[in-house]
């Protein structure tokens, strides 16, 4: 037999990753205020913003408030950046078992530009962020948000972020 260690059972791996993600998302009160949840497939995250009446900006249409859209995109970008750091630590075995570990330090927004492509409809919205560049101090992230059709974005954003200082 090979001396190779048996891989961890899938539930153990999944459980660890899900706990780390829940700890991260749960550490942001404003994400809870907006009702943001996050779906995970491997390391890929999709932020979900379930529709709620309090998210309406224009009651006449009705449409999502532009500020909600901006907040959703910015939160998605921050979660993606923090998750990437967390993931590396977790997979590298440098993360203390979650629950005992303090929530990760979050990147700070330097600037963000939001493009409103069409009005946000009164239904659930989804967003995915792509980290285009992540250095020791600065990161540049692009975020896309859609509702019914993945190809029909209702908003997109590009932001720059200051990364939290890392030990070592």
């Amino acid at each position: 037999m090979s001396p190779r260690q048996r891989p961890e059972p899938v539930q153990v791996v999944k459980g660890r990753r899900d706990r780390a993600l829940a700890g991260l998302v749960g550490s942001i009160p404003y994400a809870a205020f907006l009702g943001i949840t996050v779906d995970r497939r491997g390391d890929e995250l999709t932020a979900v913003l379930p529709f709620d009446d309090k998210l309406i900006g224009n009651p006449g249409l009705p449409a999502l408030h532009g500020g909600v859209t901006a907040a959703f995109l910015e939160t998605t970008a921050i979660l993606e950046l923090a998750w990437a750091v967390l993931w590396d630590d977790m997979e590298g075995g440098r993360l203390p078992e979650y629950g005992d570990a303090p929530p990760p330090r979050l990147p700070k927004t330097i600037d963000i530009t939001v493009d409103y492509l069409r009005s946000g409809l009164p239904r659930d919205a989804y967003a995915r962020a792509r980290v285009n560049r992540s250095g020791r101090r600065y990161a540049s992230v692009h975020v896309e948000a859609w509702q019914d059709n993945r190809a029909r974005l209702f908003a997109q954003a590009t932001g720059h972020f200051l990364m939290p200082p890392r030990e070592g």
């Binding site: 550490s27 942001i28 009160p29 404003y30 809870a32 205020f33 907006l34 900006g57 408030h65 532009g66 500020g67 909600v68 901006a70 907040a71 959703f72 910015e74 939160t75 921050i78 929530p103 330090r105 979050l106 700070k108 927004t109 963000i112 939001v114």
Partner: peptide, 26 residues
């Protein structure tokens, strides 16, 4: 407190500031 973006510092989330700026701009 519900608008906090970073629990370590208690600072309001940028998104809430965006919402204010957007509404004020409108």
């Amino acid at each position: 407190a519900r608008l906090i973006g970073d629990p370590e510092t208690g600072v309001i989330h940028g998104g809430a500031v965006s919402a204010l700026m957007d509404t004020c701009g409108g």
